[in-house]
Each structure stands twice: as structure tokens, then as C-alpha cells.
Design a protein around this nucleic acid. Structure first.
Lengths: 347, 347
DNA sequence: TTGTAGGCGTTATCAG
DNA sequence: CTGATAACGCCTACAA
């Protein structure tokens, strides 16, 4: 079924009896021609079924106009279930120029497939918490795409925004220790992009390929001595629940749980409920991120606050400035603070 | 800072001493030239810093290769907080050809801005639950982009997938009526794209611009007689909670609540808890969608099941087939079924 | 196996 | 205000 050839600038130009350039101007520089002519052009274009300049051809000619590629470390389902990411992505997309769209590149094995970034119509890439050695990152570099990384080690020549993860985690650990807790368990994100969930060995902890996990762990460990650690891929409530069940079976049983995200902490709350433990009387729980859910939790969650919306906004601003030819400056690191609510208490 | 001109196919060709076509073949048709020559080409390309064929130029030449545009009716934050959408989007992105990426187009006022679809590098569009008269839809038609719509009235010439929303809603209503409930309240999605939340007048209900809201409401109303209705934008738990509070203040107080999504129902559960009402003893609650959260809810939610993953998968398959030149067939309508769990009981 | 020539649909530059 | 003409970077018959 031969799709009939669509009309082009040329078709319209010929029909109206003017040059291509004039038709182009009718769309892109209305002030460059008389209103009446423009009117005539637009009208016959519509009559011809011409939809306006082809976006791809325009991009080729202008060498720009693609989207910003947002590279994820996980599938979309995992991504969507992470409220922290939602907030970042939302504020990022809100900050972007109106004409720039968002190319979402889900990960399949710790990152988008190399080939997808090869063919992506993007003129800047944003990496969100990818493993250090992601192939996608290598391809971005090869293509020479400007890059901004979020929560990730600096790739040379890229702009960067992250938060004081290590300090925040240390804050969380110090908080429970100050409250008198001695047996403390840790609910951690994935240490490696292999979808494993279970108790984490020291070896795995030591070799983690995710910066964020590494940093938060380092923060915890700067205060704690070899706590039991459960690792779970993604940032899923159910994963947190499962891990908390395991941690609470350890002897001696932890009286406090440090969680790398609020979602994980919510799962821990649920586990405590399952086991008939009262929070904070029998168990203290600390989250990370301070997402809206931390507020509404029952009890409201003590957590480490970070400004997720700012993270997205800054990432977008950095992307825009790279596009404008600016050179990446030093990393922008956002602060973290402890927010005490009702899920922690002295033991 | 003049970005130096990047090498092109031509640069490489000249350097190696072959023609452009040959270099092109080296990338796209390895079998068209000797391995050694190809090797030589790739090597010097790397040396020159040539990253491979430019995706935009390639697309222009092949008239394809853009992404699939996914048009949302809401901002990303709202989209992300809707688990039903996450599931659909995830299975859609999973089903897509490996080489096709996903262009996410958030809505700002009931849909993506017209201009964004004008410039989008996409060769097929998917509309998810947009209002009937969205400007984005008009632009898609104008551009002649193949379109598949999800949960939305057929736009002429587009492929369509939806679920038996009306029948499902009728199922929910019949269920509580069969259980003896006479006072039934309804927690509804937005009726119009104006971010309003509050009691819904009959006029608003009668003129809803969202097909999904219309259909589910029609299903409820086919069984119920003028129930109190609270309308809330998005599918947010908090919105459901607020609405349920209002509904439960009505006299006579409803003994059952019908909710247009599980998230809304979860909010209703929360409201019941706030008010000291036991579910299902004092109040029955029915959701819609059967997302994973319905399982885990306390009590587990009676809800209307629909196969969200299938919806995404089918949408992707339809998009692909449109791209292959197929003409849109009749709408694919997925069934809905009642899943009885513990949130409903006889009164 | 390799090269030639002609598009793909726009935009940009620079005269007129 | 309008119109040639030359890019933009690549693909694809078709010819050699």
C-alpha cells in the first residue's frame, strides 16, 4: 500500500508560485514577508495537506532540536514506582525549554542499551543513577553528546548534580545511635545491577557499582560497625518489607532500621506491623529522601531530607547550559538534613 | 568557543580513500564489503573521532527511525503516581522494537502542547486518556502521524485499545447493591481538565470530556440512582481520602463507596480509618484496576480487574503495525472482571 | 566489492 | 520583502 508522497515545502512553494525560502519564512519568520502573502501560503498549505516543516529535516538543517535523553538504570516499572525519581523527572521536564521533549530510555541491565543511545535523536543526555561502567555512558561519550549526570560519579567532561548522600546517611546513623540504639540493621538498594536480593556480603558491599548505594552505605558505616545489611533491587515497598522481615529475625534483633529510601522504610513499617512490633516503641525506622509519603506514613517517618525537585531543576538547567555551549562546572551538591518525625525514639 | 566541526561520513571516506557509500555500508551492511576494508574503515573512523552515522540525518534519508510519542493528559508527577499508567507504559516500552525509543510528552492542560507535537521526532503517536478535544490530537492528525489511542474515543483513522469500563463499573455497582447496600457514594476521576476537586454536579457529570470517567460513571449510574459524587483530578490517594471524608459526611451516610481507581479506594480506606470506621463492617469499598497495591491493601481490596500489561502490549503492537503500513482495525476491547476480596461485605 | 549520482526536506546566506 | 544557491549528513539504486 504505497503511501502517497506527502507534500513538502517545495510543493507548496510551487503551488503558490513563490520560492521554498519564502514558504519556509512563512513558518519560521512571519515578519520577513507580507501578512497577505503569508496568509496565502498557509491557506494553500492547508489545502494541500501540508503539515508544516518536517521536524527531522529541520533538525538536520539546524543541527539541533532533538530531545533530551533521560537514561535510566532500570525498567520503567521500577522507575515509576520510585517516587523520588518521579519528582526529579517531573521538575526536570517542567524546567526544560518548551520546545525540548523528553526521550525516556529505560535500562535493561543497569542502563539503556548501547544501540538505543546510538540512534537516539537527542542533543544532550541526562544519566540518572546508572552503574559506573554503563555501556550507555560510553556511547554517549563516543557520540560526543553533552552529558549531565545525577547521583553518579563524574564522567569526565560532564556536568553533575548530586546530594550529600554520605553525610545524610551518617546523620541517620548518628541519630539512632544517639537515641541509644546499639543493634542497627540496614536496608540497602542494589549493590550491583544483577537483580539480586538478600543479605549482602562485605565483598559485595565493598565493590558496589552504584555510587548512591556506595555513598549512603559509607555514611552508615562511618558510624556503625558491621551492621547486618539486606540488599534489594529497586526501591520497592515490598522489597523493604521482605528485607525488614529478615533483619528482624537476626539475633540480637535490631532495635533500629536504617533504610536507603522512604519506600523501603515504608516496607519496614509494614513488616513491623506484620510482626506485631510497635514503631517507634519496639523499633525505630529511618528513611531517606523525604518524599511526600514520609509525611503521611503511620507513624510519620523520620527521614533524611533532600530537595528532589531542585535536583531535577538543576539537572535541566545544566543540560540547557551545556546546549548553549557552556562548559561543565564543578559538581552541584545539594545538602541533606535530618527530619525527625515519629518513627524513631530512644530505646 | 567554536565547537570544531565534527567528522562526517565524508571525512572518513576521504581519509580511508573510499567513497561515502562504502563507509555507509561499513556501518549498515557489513556483508557488502570485505571484512578487512570494513575493519580499516571502523578503525580510522574511531581515530578520527567519528561516532557513526548521525541519527537525524539517517532518519531524514530513511524517513523513519524516530521514536514513538506517548502523549499524557497530565504532568509527569501525576502520571508517575498512577500505578495503572506505570504498568501500561512499562509493558508498552517493553514491547516496542529495540530500536524505537519512547518520547514522553507530558500534558499541561489536558494534553501535550500543540507545539511540542509539531516538533516531535516521532513517527507514531500513542494517546493515553486525553480529553476528547485535545489540541495535541488535532496536531497529530494534521501531521498525519499514525495514532493509537488508549482509553479514549476513536479518533477517525486511529487504532484503539480500551477496556470494558462501563461493564466493569456496572459490575462494581451491582456487587454492592447485591450485598444490600442502598446508600452508595462515588469517588470519580476528573470530569474536565480543569483541576477541580469537589462534589460533582449533574451538569458536570453529563458533559465530561474524559471518556474513561464518562464510561465508568455510566456503568455506576446504570445501577445506581443519583449517588453523591466527588470528583478529584488525577488518581491520587490523598485525593481519594479527601473525597471519602466528604462522602462520609453526607446524610444518610453511604455504606459503600465505589472508586474509579485502586489508588482512590486506598485513600477511601485511609479516610475510613481516620473516622474510626471499620472496613468492611461499617463501610464497603470497591476499587478499579486491580493494581498490585489492591492485593496488599489492608483489608485487601475488592476491585474491578483489567489487564493493564496487556493494554500496554497491545498498544505497542498496534503502533508497530501502523508503522508497517497496516490500517487500523476495529477497537480492541479488553474485558473487566470483579475480584472479590475483603473490603466489601453484606450490610 | 566499490563508486557515482541523486535524493531526503529544511534552513541560511546573500543578492536583488 | 523575495528568491537563488549552497549546505546539513546520510541512504540507495544502479552502474562499474
Amino acid at each position: 500500500m504505497a503511501r502517497e508522497r506527502r507534500p513538502t515545502l517545495d510543493t507548496v512553494a510551487r503551488e503558490v508560485g513563490v520560492s521554498r525560502a519564502t514558504v519556509s519564512n512563512a513558518y519560521n519568520r512571519p515578519d520577513q514577508l507580507s501578512a497577505s502573502l503569508r496568509e496565502r501560503i498557509i491557506t494553500t498549505a492547508a489545502a494541500l495537506g501540508y503539515a508544516g516543516p518536517d521536524p527531522v529535516a529541520r533538525s538536520l538543517a539546524t543541527r539541533s532540536g532533538g530531545a533530551v535523553a533521560f537514561m535510566l538504570g532500570s525498567r520503567l516499572s521500577a522507575a515509576f514506582s520510585d517516587p523520588a525519581l518521579s519528582i526529579v523527572l517531573d521538575s526536570l521536564s517542567d524546567t526544560l525549554d518548551a520546545e525540548r521533549s523528553l526521550l525516556l530510555m529505560p535500562g535493561v541491565d543497569g542502563g539503556p542499551r548501547r544501540e538505543s543511545v546510538t540512534r537516539a535523536h537527542a542533543d544532550v543526555a541526562v544519566a540518572y543513577s546508572l552503574p559506573d561502567d554503563s555501556a550507555a555512558l560510553a556511547e554517549v561519550r563516543k557520540r560526543g553528546l553533552p552529558l549531565v549526570v545525577i547521583d553518579q560519579p563524574v564522567v569526565s567532561g560532564s556536568a553533575m548534580v548530586d546530594v550529600a548522600d554520605r553525610a545524610g546517611a551518617a546523620l541517620a546513623a548518628s541519630h539512632v545511635v544517639a537515641l541509644g540504639h546499639r543493634e542497627v540493621g540496614v536496608l540497602a538498594f542494589a549493590l550491583h545491577p544483577d537483580d539480586r536480593s538478600g543479605p549482602a556480603s562485605e565483598a559485595r558491599i565493598g565493590s558496589s557499582r552504584f555510587r548512591i548505594t556506595r555513598e549512603r552505605m559509607a555514611g552508615y558505616l562511618s558510624v556503625l560497625d558491621a551492621p547486618p545489611v539486606w540488599e534489594t533491587p529497586g526501591s520497592l515497598r515490598e522489597g523493604g518489607r521482605e528485607g525488614a522481615h529478615w533483619l528482624l529475625r537476626q539475633v540480637p534483633r535490631p532495635t533500629a532500621l536504617l533504610c536507603m529510601s522512604d519506600e523501603l522504610a515504608l516496607g519496614a513499617l509494614r513488616a513491623a506491623h506484620d510482626l506485631g512490633l510497635r514503631v517507634p516503641d519496639d523499633l525505630s525506622v529511618v528513611g531517606f529522601d523525604d518524599t511526600p509519603a514520609a509525611h503521611w506514613a503511620d507513624p510519620p517517618l523520620t527521614t533524611i531530607h533532600q530537595d528532589l525537585a531542585a535536583k531535577g531543576r538543576i539537572a535541566a538547567e545544566l543540560a540547557i547550559s551545556l546546549l548553549d555551549g557552556a562548559r561543565p562546572g564543578p559538581a552541584r551538591t545539594l545538602p541533606t538534613t535530618l527530619v525527625e518525625r515519629a518513627s524513631t525514639a530512644a530505646r
